[in-house]
Design a protein around this nucleic acid. Structure first.
Length: 536
RNA sequence: GGCCCCGUCGUCUAGCCAGGUCUAGGACACCGGCCUUUCAAGCCGGCAACACGGGUUCAAAUCCCGUCGGGGUCACCA
């Protein structure tokens, strides 16, 4: 306790083989929280040692996603830093030196086995039901032997020469003491035949050279730790602290969440729900969905449909961590203040789309009106319903503010603004939902006449009195005079002016539309009713 | 299959290390009711868990042993 803890340096090291997914973000978040909450540094590194699998298009979206979430990094490929470069593909020389050293100290060896020979060994072991470990049959023990193998046309990889007995013991900050027998470890390849280096080697070298103090990563790396410790020790590096997070599981199961199982997850009702509401937003935007990114497992889905990064982070921080038995709401600052590795769970946590949705809803409710308005603008622009984001004070700004206010909780994600398209489309253009039209305007025999009569009342109302309170008063009066139920007229008016049966308060809707639009729309609806009646 | 990890309501979790205050708390979801011009929201109420077995102890969700179950990982991927 009296010892001053050094400021931690953590890293998030995605490989650009695909887009950022929920589990990856949770790992990034925990790394960020741990470092930044303790006055340390958070480093972004791109682990792109496998040229074959890298997807060039994935690199920029990863950075974008991190920025959107506000997980800012102190050092990284774009901003540089004292240990640059921060892309493994640009650090090969460093790795080659390390490989050389490992060969020199006898911790690694040149291996000339062909893939076929390896496969044979493996199959033989499997047939005899014994655990397989490479026989080192094509291990070169001298320069002379190397030349001989090369003369046979063989190509060499570099393998780790793992210990054959003893136990690797390390202290995991989350799991406690972990013990793994060395004999169970393979002689992993650290350098390919083409001279490029593999993840384990690169990762250990970089973590050391970048002075990473804490390696916080998902549990699937737990079994990688032993071989990485072996490499680090052979290279004479001090060991960092390890913390292995439980992985994020599928909704309603214990399997690891995977972005490739979208189709399967769509069978899960809550998952399907958020997917489909996202789909409606994309439809309204007239955008084709890219199956690579339009996936609730992938972070971009949330960015594209208008979630709040705060909500996502709040949900994610509780996936495997908790402060106590009741605190659920965390701002960025609160997370930073309270996060600790000691309170990270050991068991995997299932991704629950319904709970994410609940956090989003609560966060959205708390946003000041102006923030919501700002969030909604890009969607309206994208849909082509407004030319550009209006400045405060402009009539259009005022109008959208009004809509957002009246829509209230119906806007859970910013993209939900698009359900109110009828408020932005022309009086003669907005579409009618045929089912609602049928139910509210064609079927009730009195509907046409009542609607026409109410339109007459509205015409009497001077434009400056066309506000919700006054409109409601007028309708109440109208209903009373005629001895009808309010439901007989209100639904008819709603469908007439919006084209659909659902929406926010009717009087507020009329107010937003204004007198001229309201009347024009009612007239259009009346004509439509007459056409239908004439036809039948 | 080998090695490793994990096991509290459907889900996220509190409680476990330092056994009694736990007839196991909170949240989401679900169900019911209220409110209501639609859809939401809101309010009130309800259902629901210590994987199993044995041991230690006056006392076990908590400690020990075993069983079962689930998962991760076993690449010239990261």
């Amino acid at each position: 306790m009296s010892q001053i803890a050094p400021r931690p340096r953590t890293r998030f090291a995605p490989s650009p083989t695909g887009y950022l997914h929920i589990g990856g973000v949770r790992t990034a978040l925990f790394n960020w929280l741990f470092a930044k909450g303790r006055g340390g540094q958070f480093i972004l590194r791109i682990d792109d040692t496998d040229q074959q699998r890298n997807v060039q298009e994935a690199y920029e979206p990863i950075l974008e996603g991190m920025r959107w979430l506000g997980l800012d990094w102190d050092e990284g490929p774009d901003v540089g830093g004292p240990y640059a470069p921060y892309r493994q593909s640009q650090r090969t020389e460093l790795y080659q030196q390390a490989v050389q050293k490992l060969l020199e100290v006898g911790a690694a060896y040149w291996d000339y086995a062909t893939p076929e020979e390896l496969a044979q060994e493996r199959e033989a072991a499997q047939r005899e039901k014994r655990p397989w470990r490479y026989s080192r049959r094509w291990m070169a023990t001298s320069e002379e032997q190397r030349r001989r193998f090369q003369a046979q046309g063989r190509q060499a990889v570099v393998r780790l020469k793992m210990p054959e007995d003893g136990t690797c013991v390390f202290e995991d900050l989350i799991r406690g003491r972990v013990e793994v027998p060395w004999a169970g470890e393979q002689d992993h390849v650290i350098q390919r035949a083409d001279g490029s280096v593999l993840y384990h080697l690169a990762s250990v070298v970089d973590d050391y050279q970048m002075r990473i103090t804490h390696i916080i990563r998902a549990e699937e790396h737990l079994s990688n730790t032993t071989r990485q410790i072996f490499i680090a020790q052979a290279l004479g590096y001090p060991l960092p602290q390890f913390a292995h997070l439980p992985y994020v599981a599928e909704p309603g199961s214990r399997n690891k969440l995977s972005k490739r199982k979208l189709k399967k997850y769509l069978n899960q009702p809550d998952f399907r729900k958020i997917y489909e509401s996202g789909l409606r937003i994309m439809e309204a935007l007239g955008q084709a969905v890219d199956p690579e990114t339009f996936n609730p497992v992938v972070i971009q889905f949330y960015k594209d449909t208008g979630y709040l990064p705060e909500a996502l982070l709040n949900y994610l921080v509780l996936l495997g961590w908790s402060l106590d038995d009741r605190t659920e709401h965390f701002t960025r600052e609160e997370m930073l203040r309270h996060f600790s590795l000691q309170r990270v769970n050991r068991a995997p946590a299932s991704f629950d789309p319904a709970k994410l949705q609940a956090f989003q809803q609560r966060w959205m409710q708390q946003q000041p009106l102006e923030r919501k308005v700002q969030l909604v603008f890009p969607f309206l622009e994208e849909a082509g319903w407004i030319p550009q984001a209006p400045a405060p004070g402009e009539p259009l700004h005022r109008r959208i503010e009004q809509i957002v206010q009246y829509a209230g909780d119906r806007i859970t994600v910013a993209g939900d603004i698009l359900q109110f398209g009828y408020l932005f489309q022309g009086d003669q253009e907005f579409p009618y939902n045929e089912k609602d039209f049928q139910k509210r305007l064609l079927k009730p025999p009195e509907a046409r006449e009542l609607l026409a009569a109410f339109a007459g009342e509205l015409e009497q109302l001077p434009p400056e009195q066309f506000h919700a309170a006054r409109l409601e008063e007028r309708m109440k009066q109208f209903v009373e005079e005629r001895g009808i139920k309010i439901g007989q007229i209100i639904h008819a008016v709603r469908v007439a002016v919006t084209g659909q049966g659902v929406g926010f308060g009717l009087f507020e809707t009329l107010e937003v539309l204004g007198r001229d639009s309201t009347l024009a729309r009612i007239r259009r609806a009346l004509r439509r009713v007459e056409q239908h009646q004439a036809a039948s």
